[in-house]
Design a binder for these strands. Structure first.
Lengths: 338, 338
DNA sequence: ATTTAAAACTAAAACGATTAAGTTAAAAAT
DNA sequence: ATTTTTAACTTAATCGTTTTAGTTTTAAAT
């Protein structure tokens, strides 16, 4: 590999001059600069990122901590889309991304250690158990951090507007004539708390009493568990007319349970999901769901993280809230004009 | 950050000794080693990966070049799954992964340049236009490379067995009583060539003549284009009884076109996909498809790439062929016992 | 008691950049 | 004509490792 030194020899100048010329410092003459750049191109020079990183402590590398229940944020469509959007924006700004994990070969490292070891300039955290001590270590650490879908006091956070999302979804369902709306929610997290809270609040404002049995604790992204919980709901004496599932994917479990019971959707019972993944819109019937704006989430996360990195003095903690929108499928029956 | 030097001072030995102790060289005494390791742990020492990379030219970082038509291998379920499996295996062996791309900020770099700049130890290439000059540059380059779903003479390749896959799929459809089997295939590539070749060969062996109009050139992962092409097939005087689509995702377009035409699946016409993505098995009817073994593909790619990296002398070019299996859904009607 | 061999450690160069501080040459000010 | 300023470079240290080629100490062999 051709180095700065090779160029300096060819050009008859010092390595310092070459370095400065390539980095466009002001104390190098125009003619010299141009010549050095020409020669560098001719020789096929590529900067050595480690050497640079060693000296400057900047890698132009962003850590990504994306982990779902199944240990693979990659195959989870929601996080997938957020990640892809994050990646696109990061690359646009000249950053690469590196996945942060705990288990590197034999050794285990904490997320913080891994981040430090790879020297990432900052980390985006999403899709994870935010109470994990290893995550907390990272949050408390000295690296710029942006969290997605969870808010820490002293850190920039990008969140999907789960309060408004759930309100909009319920309002839509209510306007379709439903009042007996059950909710199988996901495991406890701030996302879940916001949604459940908004569920109660919205129904309360609409003057609807919610029987305790209508709110069931489930698991995100788990059709199997959802099958069981759905059956429970179907067995109720006062069965709901609509069930909201933790997300579109687990909704499939719910749909299967309902079909197994000999019921039709939406004729006999209505269902709604959450996320608005591709799949939800190709199912028959199309699922009525709240589509989260994954593009904006990923893009904002990258923007804010890079801003944090590039303006270390002005460490501004920001809160970005991204709204989603109701995707009206065909899975919620209109009870108004029957 | 605590460095090797800090440890050396605390232990009263030279930095060389510390380095060797931590890397378990044979010329350091047991007691010294243990002491140094203890102190290193106490002080929270983390090796600096750039410094190490600078000296050793090894980063324990693998480049990933995953690009689909939409410029985002990440949101494409097939590649997604391959990538995830690749990542899991790589991490198990102590490697991180870095996405290789062309456009870093303002500057554009070739894939090869990007790989060199980031100093990845090797690159896996998949899901891309393999005739792209930038890809060729990488293939011809001096980095260990493994390709997925495309074979280059002098490079290790992991391929899904498209010949056997298509044969199995067609054999299944044939056994269900079909002889008029159309095929909308994807854009030209070695994958497509293998599938189309196998399509003709298998049908030929079964003694079935294929009308020219039954083989249509389409696009992978593009439901919209598939809608149009499906309509063409449906309009034929001698309409096929079964249509094979480029993949499961574009199959959705085909299904929609068929439904629009007032036809039922599989009662009036049968369809088959390719890939076996999650989605194919939750649709109603379940799509009959050939499920590719994405886990094995990703794992093998990582294994072979790392083998190449860790045994530079024995540069063995390998060919790994991974078989898939027919997922018999409900989208192909059994014509035998009507 | 002396030489030889083995074990345990160190010195210093190197990897490829960046950068603070210093130097030289040319231009501007006196 | 001399001093001051500015422009255009260079020197050399530094980042944190690894590693070659010693050096010293201890043990074994003579």
């Amino acid at each position: 590999m051709v180095s700065i030194k090779d160029i300096s020899i060819r050009c008859g100048v010092s390595v310092a001059t070459v370095s400065k010329a390539l980095n466009d410092h002001s104390d190098i003459g125009q003619i010299t600069k141009e010549n050095i750049r020409k020669v560098a191109k001719e020789m096929g020079y590529l900067p050595n990122s480690f050497a640079r990183a060693l000296k400057t402590n900047r890698t132009y590398n962003l850590g990504v901590l994306f982990m779902d229940e199944a240990q693979s944020g990659l195959t989870h469509e929601y996080f997938n889309n957020v990640l892809n959007s994050f990646k696109v924006e990061a690359e646009k700004k000249g950053y690469d991304i590196t996945f942060i994990n705990k288990y590197m070969g034999q050794k285990t490292m904490s997320y913080y250690e891994h981040s430090k070891y790879r020297g990432v300039d900052g980390v985006v955290i999403a899709c994870i158990d935010f109470s994990d001590p290893d995550v907390i270590e990272l949050i408390r650490g000295d690296l710029p951090v942006v969290t997605i879908d969870h808010v820490f006091d002293n850190r920039t956070a990008i969140t999907s507007d789960n309060v408004k999302g759930m309100r909009d979804l319920i309002t839509y369902i209510y306007e379709m004539g439903h009042t007996k709306i059950a909710y199988i929610h996901g495991a406890d997290s701030s996302v879940t708390q916001n949604r459940v809270g908004s569920y109660y609040k919205t129904l309360g404002e609409l003057g609807i009493e919610v029987p305790d049995e209508y709110v069931v604790s489930g698991i995100y992204h788990d059709p199997d568990t959802t099958v069981k919980l759905t059956k429970k709901l179907l067995a109720l004496k006062d069965r709901p007319t609509c069930i909201i599932f933790p997300d579109d994917f687990s909704c499939i479990g719910g749909i299967n349970a309902i079909k197994e019971n000999g019921l039709r959707i939406p004729e006999d019972i209505s269902v709604a999901g959450y996320d608005g993944i591709l799949l939800s819109q190709v199912l028959d019937p199309k699922i009525t769901t709240l589509q989260q704006n994954t593009k904006a989430l990923g893009r904002s996360a990258a923007e804010k993280l890079i801003a944090l990195i590039e303006n270390p003095k002005a460490t501004i903690i920001e809160r970005v809230v991204v709204e989603g929108k109701v995707l009206a499928g065909n899975s919620v029956k209109n009870l108004n004009h029957k």
